[in-house]
């Protein structure tokens, strides 16, 4: 599953939500140091590692780790 969200880099544009076939992401209420409401991988366990989010993210905020099963969200601040 290993969905890594770097909330320091995320700007909450939501493009990951539009490309994810498994609806893993949702916009959260959490705001980062730049004032952006960031996304959260609320259904990380549904991830099928297609990496469409990672490849489409304009901010390099996402990373799907191949050989890892836990998921991790960096702190927003």
């Amino acid at each position: 599953m290993a969905v890594h969200v770097n909330k320091r880099l995320c700007k909450g544009c939501g493009l990951c939500m539009t490309v994810c076939p498994k609806n893993v992401y949702e916009l959260s209420d959490e705001v980062n140091q730049k004032g952006f409401a960031v996304i959260s991988a609320v259904r990380a366990s549904d991830c099928i590692k297609c990496k469409r989010c990672e490849i489409n993210c304009p901010d390099m905020a996402l990373w799907i780790e191949d050989d890892e099963t836990s998921s991790k969200e960096e702190s927003a601040r």
């Binding site: 700007k11 990672e54 993210c57 304009p58 901010d59 905020a61 990373w63 960096e74």
Partner: peptide
């Protein structure tokens, strides 16, 4: 630990200044 492409970026300059959802980031 993060997106492997970050090793090519000047990380002290991140996040970059492009607006949320701007295509420039995808081009990078």
């Amino acid at each position: 630990k993060g997106n492997p492409l970050l090793k090519y970026m000047r990380q002290d300059k991140l996040p970059h200044f492009f607006c949320p959802g701007c295509g420039c980031g995808q081009v990078v």
